[in-house]
């Protein structure tokens, strides 16, 4: 039965500030859920702490609103225990690239088959606008007492270095692009990052909706605003790493990712930067050691006999520890 948007929304009062980019992300995510052919009962949304975190409550799927920065390990635990779940982890930029940066890196190394969406607004929204790790050096958003003294982290490059096998960026108010990107990320077999540029009208007065849509720079010909975000895939860029590519080809692509992801200012790249479906997932790697893993993952195992006794045949195992007969 096809799902309608109303099916994947809860009826709770949404308390984000009006005009917040989070609304765009929520709508795109929920539309993606209705368009994907995934059984909605298998979908679990994990979120972190920050304004973004409430998305788990607004969405009518299993929703686990976790701790600040810890979304990824919670989500990976569930996926490991039951690989049949469709796990979508959602974080903030402070949450995921700041306090949770360690988990961000190690999730790439594991490459579990899941999706990670980051609300990248340049600020710590929920704690009233401090600089987040993606705010640029010297920028001074509304509530900073002094200009930001740290350089910005480049999430695309960080993900590449960490081993993410699907790396994309989208924009909160480009509904169609974001929705399609989320669908592609979910369909990708492996760890997928979608970094979403998200205006925070309350605290980020630099990277505003007007900034992204280029209201300050009208097209000389049409006098219409010229949006800053451009879709790299529409400009001829191909993110795919294929089996046929030589190591040199892969290196070249890697350098390209670095180059494009560094663009900022008047041209801001969005789209899929990198996609490599040939890296074994963590699930594959476990299968190499535990051949029954996918049929009987931790959450599906029989641990109990009819008489409620333990199903494990330990005496067989502890022969190696037993002496005498």
């Amino acid at each position: 039965m096809a799902l309608k948007l109303a099916d994947v929304r809860t009826d709770l009062h949404n308390d984000w500030c009006s005009g917040c980019g989070d609304f765009g992300i929520e709508a795109s995510l929920q539309m993606a859920l209705t368009e994907m052919s995934v059984d909605i009962h298998r979908v679990v949304i994990f979120s972190g702490i920050g304004c973004h975190g409430k998305i788990a409550h607004w969405t009518n799927t299993f929703g686990i609103h976790t701790l600040h920065g810890r979304t990824l390990p919670f989500a990976q635990g569930a996926k490991l225990a039951n690989p049949g779940l469709e796990v979508i982890a959602i974080g903030g930029d402070g949450d995921g690239y700041g306090i949770g940066a360690g988990h961000f890196v190690h999730s790439g190394r594991r490459n579990l088959d899941m999706t990670y969406i980051v609300h990248d607004n340049g600020v710590y929204g929920l704690t009233k606008g401090q600089a987040s790790p993606t705010q640029r050096l010297g920028e001074q958003t509304k509530s900073l007492p002094q200009p930001n003294i740290n350089s910005a982290v480049n999430p695309i490059m960080l993900a590449l270095a960490a081993g993410y096998t699907f790396i994309a960026r989208s924009y909160a108010f480009d509904n169609r692009h974001l929705k399609e990107t989320i669908k592609r990320a979910v369909a990708h077999r492996g760890m997928a990052l979608v970094d979403v540029l998200q205006p925070c009208p309350t605290y980020n007065d630099i990277e505003t909706k007007a900034f992204y849509s280029g209201e300050d720079r009208p097209d000389p010909a049409t006098h219409r605003p010229a949006p800053r975000c451009y879709d790299i895939e529409k400009s001829g860029y191909n993110p795919l790493i294929t089996k046929e590519m030589t190591p040199e080809d892969v290196d070249k692509k890697t350098l390209e990712v670095i180059k494009i992801s560094n663009e900022w200012g008047d041209r801001i790249p969005i789209g899929v930067f990198y996609q490599n479906g040939n890296v074994p997932t963590y699930e594959d790697r476990i299968m190499g050691r535990i051949p029954t893993y996918l049929e009987q993952p931790p959450a599906k195992q029989v641990i109990q006999l009819q008489d409620r006794k333990s199903a494990a045949d330990l005496p067989r195992l502890w022969k190696e520890l037993t002496i005498g007969s």
């Binding site: 390990p73 635990g77 569930a78 225990a81």
Partner: peptide, 30 residues
């Protein structure tokens, strides 16, 4: 007749506890 336990070496103890909790939410004894 095959049983197994998945053992994960995590990046830190924060991940260790939260990953175990995630697994438990999915129904595994963790």
């Amino acid at each position: 007749g095959k049983g197994s336990v998945v053992v994960v070496q995590t990046e830190d103890e924060i991940a260790a506890i939260t990953m175990a909790v995630g697994g438990a939410l999915a129904g595994a004894r963790a």
